[in-house]
Design a protein around this nucleic acid. Structure first.
Length: 559
RNA sequence: UGGCCCGUGGUGUAACGGUAGCACAGCAGAUUUUGGUUCUGUUUGUCAGGGUUCGAAUCCUUGCGGGCCAACCA
């Protein structure tokens, strides 16, 4: 294989890149302009993230630009609260829109263009009720019937449409419809509605309008006005493309083109605004930014980085078939990112007291440990070693199974960056629960200057009982117990009852008192954690972003 | 019973008529003062039948399977 072929093979293009490169090569466009067109009626989720990364990513790759345009054509569901969160989420992901625009900016132009269509005899005012229109629409297997208002003369339609705009008719009294083909095999082309009357307050245009354009009338023309070259949307809009082109052709305006890719789903999650809204409103989660939510704001609070989400979107790629990306890939992406960047800290989530019986009371030695073994530049820190320590309850077992490398009676482990200790005895309460583990330490085994010659298999983290400070640690797990909750008859019946467990008695290094919401750490041997905005002075709250891979947990599952 | 879109390992994605590759997951091993990281090896795949061709994942065809379309939502 030649080097050129090797390079070409290494850089295989997805179908959108192929289209763009062909358009650029053919001189159809000198540069590209894409757009991300959310409706401001909810918070952005991971599905939107894939669309954002696609639109902005393609523009970046080919030296083009991307507009953020709000598809705000339905005043009753939309709100500025959502506008603001969407702008913030796009920026947080790391993208800066070339322009922030609104379909409502084009209402006047859209109105003028509607009149152009009416004058051409291509649109008419229909006084049929919603039910009548539905009845005349036909079905996928039978053609529809023409509306009795279909042949009204253009002049009359014009007058009626102006009356609609002037507010002379009540909501739902009539609509403006395109005159296309009631027998089209494409249901979308059976005289689609262009305008409906809604005497509702719009979050941007206020009460200036009482007629609002439908998606099909607003979207393509908005693209055209902005000069969007590649209007990328999801597959459910494929049948709309015929209408998209029809409108642009009959208006004779800039021919934006629509291309469709398959929606990308995530296993163990739901990504429908309706379902997410239900979870919030029925208090299954604490809000749109609950760290268990697959929203951008949820991932942000959970501790995901923008880089990790972009990497995930990149890795799952883009295609035309319905797909479900594996949650484990998202987890891989955040671990990969944080492994390189997060400083290591010791935290004990479920503390068990260890008393080093041969260590003098009141004595403290300072143990040096690295902040990030992946990055020597991250430096080192010191930890206090004292007679009484906390270790993770999981790291001790009175009757351990085979291959248990941690502490157990008669056995030794290394306290990471400190000494090797041996368990001599345990103390229990009346219920038989181990309350203290009594150990002796090996003075010659100090980390970095170990002359003991001992070899131990287990290394565990620890904290000085007198130095450690309390913290709350929220441990999140997948919100749903099944891979595809949306396919269940009742998706909420598959909610994971253990999606949040709170470690109330956790202790952490004293240095962790000086943190800001959003700060990220690896708690050694446990996982990646992020400071939650709920933190109070003296009582930090940490969210578990993701655990470390756990070979021992896997080993145990095998039984 | 109509039209449109789509079928490649468990998941996702390449191969554009010429050796089915990559990533994640899984499994096995090496290294390791994080049972992490890193490294090595490895199981598993072209929906089915027919056709075109020297040669088909790729082109044609039939079937099967999945998705979308009958909102005054987007």
């Amino acid at each position: 294989m030649s080097t050129e072929n090797a390079a070409a093979a290494a850089e295989s293009l997805n179908f959108l890149e192929e289209i763009i490169e062909a358009d650029l090569a053919a001189g159809k466009h000198t540069s590209i302009l894409t757009r991300f067109p959310p409706e401001p009626n909810g918070y952005l989720h991971i599905g939107h993230a894939t669309s954002i990364c696609l639109n902005f990513g393609l523009a970046l790759k080919y030296g083009g630009k991307t507009n953020l345009r709000f598809d705000d054509t339905n005043p009753v569901t939309e709100d500025t609260e959502y506008v603001e969160s969407i702008i913030a989420d796009v920026r947080w992901l790391g993208f800066e829109p070339a322009n922030i625009l609104y379909a409502s900016d084009y209402f006047e132009q859209l109105y003028e263009w509607a009149k152009v269509l009416i004058n051409k005899g291509l649109a008419y005012v229909d006084f049929s009720s919603a039910e009548e229109i539905a009845a005349m629409k036909g079905t996928p297997t039978e053609p529809g019937r023409n509306s009795p208002y279909r042949d009204t003369a253009p002049e009359e339609n014009l007058a009626l449409f102006e009356k609609m705009k002037a507010g002379e008719f009540p909501d739902g009294h009539c609509t403006l419809r395109a005159k296309i083909d009631m027998a089209s095999p494409n249901m979308i082309m059976r005289d689609p509605l262009l305008y409906r009357i809604k005497k509702a307050h719009h979050h941007r245009t206020g009460d200036a309008w009482c007629i609002y354009p439908m998606y099909d009338w607003a979207h393509g023309q908005s693209d055209s006005i902005e000069g969007i070259t590649h209007s990328i949307c999801t597959m459910e809009f494929v049948p709309h493309r015929e209408l998209y082109d029809w409108c642009i052709n009959h208006l004779g305006i800039f021919p934006s083109k629509q291309y469709e890719f398959a929606r990308r789903n995530l296993s163990y999650a739901v990504t429908s605004k309706r379902k997410l809204k239900q979870l919030v409103e029925e208090n299954h989660v604490r809000g749109w930014d609950d760290p268990r939510m697959p929203t951008i704001s949820g991932y942000r609070r959970r501790g995901y980085t923008p880089e990790s989400i972009r990497e995930f979107c990149d890795r799952i790629g883009v295609g035309k078939r319905e797909m479900v990306a594996d949650m484990s890939l998202l987890e891989f992406c955040i671990r990969e990112d944080l492994n390189k960047r997060a400083l290591r800290r010791f935290a004990v989530l479920d503390p068990l007291k260890v008393v080093i019986t041969n260590y003098p009371e009141g004595q403290t030695e300072w143990m040096e440990t690295e902040n990030n073994p992946e990055n020597p530049d991250a430096g080192k820190r010191t930890l206090a070693f004292t007679r009484e320590l906390w270790i993770e309850r999981d790291d001790f077992m009175e009757n351990p199974p085979p291959k248990y490398f941690r502490l157990s009676p008669g056995n030794m482990v290394r306290l990471k960056s400190a000494f090797i200790i041996r368990c001599d005895s345990v103390a229990k309460d009346a219920a038989g629960i181990v309350t203290e583990v009594h150990c002796t330490y090996i003075p010659e085994s100090r980390s970095g200057q170990d002359t003991s010659g001992l070899k131990v298999q287990g290394v565990i983290h620890w904290l000085s009982a007198s130095e450690a400070v309390p913290a709350e640690v929220r441990m999140y797990d997948r919100l749903f117990q099944v891979e595809d909750p949306a396919s269940e008859e009742d998706f909420k019946s598959t909610l994971n009852p253990n999606s949040l467990r709170v470690a109330e008695n956790a202790v952490v290094e004293p240095a962790l008192l000086q943190v800001q919401p959003g700060d990220k750490f690896q708690f050694t041997r446990l996982g990646y954690f992020c400071v939650d905005p709920d933190s109070m002075p003296g009582k930090p709250v940490f969210n578990r972003t993701v655990t470390l891979k756990d070979a021992w947990a896997k080993e145990q599952k095998k039984g």
